[in-house]
Write a protein that binds this DNA or RNA. Structure first.
Lengths: 115, 115
DNA sequence: CACTTGATAAAGCAGATGCTTGAGTAGCGC
DNA sequence: GCGCTACTCAAGCATCTGCTTTATCAAGTG
C-alpha cells in the first residue's frame, strides 16, 4: 500500500471534518467570511483553541485566510469539499454497479428457472 | 452548543473515513463482502489491528456483519455514506446560495451605475 | 510613547488512537 | 475428545489530539 498525495489530502480532509466544532465552523463560514474572534464567540473554549481548529481546517484546504487590519478573515474553499464527495461517490458508484450486476445475474437465473 | 445524535453520528462517520486503511477497506467492500482475514491480507499490520479498524467502521454504521461458519463477513452499508454526503452538500448549498445573492447584488449595483 | 485588540507560539496535560503481543473463544474436521 | 481456523479481548505503549495557560507579536488608538 503506497501512500499518495491524494491519500494525505483525504486524511486531512476527513480528519478536519471529524470534529464537531470544526464542522460547525465550516457551516458558519458557508454563510460568509468571519474573523477568528467572531468564530470563537459561540464557544465556551478559548480563542486559542478555536485558532488551532482553524489551522487544522486551513491545512486541510477547507478554508483560506486573508489579512485585513489586525484580523485574519477566514473564508470557505468549497472546492476542497468536492474531493471528499468525490471519494464517497466513487465507493457508492462501485457498490451500485455491483448491485446492478447482481440483479442482472439474479434476473438471468430467474429466467432460466422459468424455462 | 448542544450535541445531538446527528453530531455523534457525523463524528463517528468522518472519524472512520479519516484513516487511510479504513477508507481502503470501505473501497474494498464496495466491490463485495469479505471476511476479516481477507481484508487483513493486503496489509503489513496484524489481523487484530484490522479487526479494530473494522470495529470502528461498524460503530460508525458504515459496515455491518453477519456470521457464516467461523467467519464474520463484513458488508458495506452505503446508506451511511449518504449522511456524510448530505452534510457536505448542505454546506455547499448554503455557500452557493450566498454566491447567488452576491451576484444578484453586484448585478443590481452594476445596473444602478449604468443608469 | 504606552495601551488595547486580534491573533499566533509554545509548553504542558489528560485522554484518544493505532498499533503490538499474548491469551481466550466459537465453530468446524478428525 | 484434540487441534485447527477465524476471530475477539485485553494490556501495554508510543504518538496524536484537543484543550489549557502564559507569553509574544503586529496593527491600530489614545
Amino acid at each position: 500500500m503506497v501512500t499518495t498525495i491524494e491519500d494525505q489530502r483525504l486524511d486531512a480532509l476527513f480528519t478536519a471534518l471529524s470534529d464537531r466544532t470544526r464542522r460547525d465552523i465550516v457551516a458558519r463560514l458557508s454563510t460568509g467570511e468571519a474573523t477568528v474572534k467572531e468564530l470563537a464567540k459561540p464557544y465556551a473554549m478559548s480563542m486559542q483553541a478555536v485558532s488551532q481548529h482553524i489551522r487544522v481546517l486551513e491545512r486541510s484546504g477547507l478554508i483560506s485566510r486573508g489579512r485585513h487590519r489586525q484580523t485574519r478573515p477566514c473564508r470557505l474553499e468549497p472546492a476542497a469539499l468536492e474531493a471528499a464527495v468525490s471519494w464517497i461517490e466513487e465507493s457508492q458508484r462501485t457498490w451500485s454497479e455491483r448491485m446492478d450486476r447482481l440483479e442482472t445475474h439474479l434476473a438471468c437465473l430467474q429466467k432460466r428457472e422459468n424455462q
